[in-house]
């Protein structure tokens, strides 16, 4: 039986307050006894989106809930409609200005999306199944090497994709058109990372340079401060674009960790 053990690291854009971090991530490591499979999700609210924090929190909470969608086109289409309806139902009763009302009606909110579930972890068909809209990326690592990344975006393609989960019903058709599905076989000892765009782009560049050191270092990360130091160093060196960054790590183990690590 493979068990999932997830941890998330995040840091806001330099110049923003911590509460202005507009990514969001959530995970549920599953419950083998109850037949509940692990699910995890990372989303990246667009810089110009309206009330992005409410939208991204709404998306991640809904995705990892026990009622969250299966990783199929049809199920995700139904889920997109559900989350859009809930967003509209929770609209402010009154808007402070005509500009705010205009933004809510014409643009609304928007976020890139990478949602994943782990399936059949007790048998030979153990695998990840993921859905993506936009440039939040899943990396599958085995023995310190990158097996694959999903969606299979190139280093020069970040920031160019218009895909994401939007709040406007008119966005539904483009979302379903752009939705990408992927899967990969997993083994105990593998590590999955999910990163938002700026960090994902940096990971691809660094992996091409010295991937073994990179993945071992990230697999061993054990404190928010250590993550923040890496991000600060890379931003200062001009290698990491100044953006909100999020790294969700899922280690696949054969037994639950013996130690509980708390970051203080």
């Amino acid at each position: 039986m493979i068990l999932a053990c997830s941890t998330c690291f995040a840091l806001e854009k330099q110049g923003s307050a911590p509460l202005e971090w507009e990514d969001a991530a959530a995970y549920h490591d599953g419950d083998p006894a109850a037949g509940v499979e692990p699910r995890f999700v990372v989303v990246d609210g667009a810089t110009e989106a309206y009330d992005a924090i409410r939208w991204v929190e709404h998306l991640v909470a809904s995705f990892v809930a026990h009622t969250g969608p299966a990783i199929t086109h049809d199920a995700l289409g139904v889920w997109f409609e559900q989350v859009q309806r809930l967003w509209a139902a929770e609209a402010p009763a009154r808007f402070a200005t005509v500009i705010e009302r205009h933004k809510f009606l014409t643009e609304g909110s928007f976020a890139t999306f990478l949602g994943c579930r782990l399936a059949d972890l007790d048998g030979p068909g153990a695998r990840w199944e993921a859905a993506a809209l936009g440039d939040t990326v899943l990396f599958h690592i085995r023995d310190g090497r990158l097996l694959s990344h999903f969606p299979p975006i190139g280093v020069d393609e970040f920031g160019l994709s218009p895909a994401g989960v939007g709040t406007r019903p008119e966005a539904l058709d483009p979302m379903l058109r752009d939705l990408e599905l992927g899967a990969g076989e997993v083994r105990a000892g593998d590590v999955l990372f999910v990163a938002t765009d700026a960090l994902a782009q940096w990971l691809l560049v660094e992996a091409a340079r010295d991937e073994s050191s990179l993945w071992w270092a990230l697999a061993a990360l054990d404190h928010d401060a250590a993550f923040a130091a890496i991000v600060a160093d890379q931003r200062a060196a001009g290698r990491l674009h100044n953006d909100d960054v999020t790294l969700l790590r899922v280690r696949l183990l054969t037994e639950a960790p013996g130690d509980l690590v708390m970051c203080l």
Partner: peptide
């Protein structure tokens, strides 16, 4: 100008 205001309007009830 409206677009720039809309881009800058982020929070419910907030200023640009």
């Amino acid at each position: 100008l409206l677009d720039l205001c809309v881009k800058s309007a982020k929070e419910v009830g907030g200023r640009a």
